[in-house]
């Protein structure tokens, strides 16, 4: 019985993240539109975009290889698996022990690896520019993320995300400088990794400022649908991560009943909506930075994360 419940919770989580990702992005776009006094597209527009793309034929570039065709599926699958392991409404995920937080970040790294390769496959200038910049951003954001993981893991005594979430929910955690530094660093990493302003602009139509969009320029039809969905999923993943670590209230603990899970889901929806609204306000108040300023931004994130971890190392009394 318990097994069935756990399987159901894990399955619901997988469906929830993939189903809610377009909604979160639609809501974010709506917020941004309202902030600029436009009416904006409906909140459900991303779903319509997906359907429209799925109904179209795929036009492949003449020299695209099998890697180009396989990459959308692999990238989506890796991101989906990673997102399914981040607690949303309940922390008792059945398969949470199959990959800890380091492995989740590494899965996103695998997804980026394939996406960058796909960008280089057709052999156009824009694909190369996107891949090169994406890897530059990734190679600075990933160490910053690992430093954040170090901080959290040292506090919670585990790299297991469900256990970190449980620890952050418990009364053992107090106000700590490290947590503040880790939160600041995580926000910066999340912005960079999900390709939001000021690092990248998902709505840009100016070629030279594109990073992610340049990399996926050659995709069309169902492949593009998967790539778009992956990008939205990644944004939701980072929002969920921040929510479950730093705003863990309401996440149903393992073994709790249906009601707690439903309440957790309601609270989760509220948290994500609030996070999207805040992100929209933030994006409205800031301009996109030059690509070569990004290393400074991410270097600051790395330093903040490092400082947080270092504080824990030196303050640990045996």
């Amino acid at each position: 019985m318990a097994l069935i419940r756990d399987v159901a919770a894990q399955g619901a989580q997988m469906l929830l993240v993939v189903g809610a990702a377009p909604l979160a992005t639609g809501f974010l776009r709506k917020c941004k539109a309202r902030l600029t006094r436009r009416r904006g597209a409906p909140v459900l527009q991303p779903y319509r975009d997906l359907l429209r793309l799925l109904r179209k034929d795929v036009v492949l570039a003449e020299n695209a290889s099998w890697l180009f065709r396989a990459a959308p599926y692999l990238v989506f699958a890796a991101t989906w698996v990673a997102a399914a392991l981040v607690p949303t409404f309940g922390s008792g995920l059945l398969f949470s022990w199959s990959a800890d937080l380091i492995a989740i970040v590494a899965l996103l790294g695998s997804a980026r690896f394939f996406l960058a390769l796909a960008g280089m496959d057709v052999g156009t200038a824009f694909g190369g520019i996107g891949a090169s910049r994406e890897m530059m951003i990734g190679s600075l954001a990933e160490p910053a993320m690992l430093m954040i993981i170090f901080s959290l893991a040292l506090l919670a005594g585990s790299t297991q995300l469900s256990l970190i979430a449980a620890y952050m929910q418990s009364s053992a955690v107090g106000l700590r400088v490290t947590l503040g530094l880790a939160l600041a660093a995580l926000l910066m990493v999340a912005i960079a990794e999900s390709g939001r302003i000021p690092v990248d602009n998902p709505a840009t139509h100016l070629e030279l400022t594109m990073v992610h969009e340049a990399m996926v320029l050659e995709y069309s039809g169902r492949h593009l649908a998967l790539i778009e969905l992956t990008a939205w999923l990644k944004l939701l993943l980072y929002l969920s991560l921040i929510a479950c670590v730093f705003v863990p209230w309401g996440v149903a603990p393992p073994g709790s009943g249906l009601l707690a899970h439903v309440a957790g889901a309601g609270l989760y929806a509220g948290k994500i909506a609030l996070a999207c609204a805040l992100l929209a306000v933030f994006e409205m108040t800031i301009a996109k930075m030059r690509v070569f300023r990004v290393p400074n931004f991410l270097g600051a994130a790395l330093m903040l994360g490092f400082l947080g971890a270092m504080l824990l190392f030196v303050s640990r009394i045996i």
Binding site: L54, D57, E62, A77, F126, R222, L226
Partner: peptide
């Protein structure tokens, strides 16, 4: 997951794949 998505797409949205010159903006 990759197989699941590929199967779902094949089942519900089977569209043609054609070859053309690279777009490159």
């Amino acid at each position: 997951s990759a197989a699941l998505v590929a199967a779902a797409i094949r089942l519900f949205a089977p569209r043609r794949t054609t070859r053309g010159p690279a777009w490159d903006c």
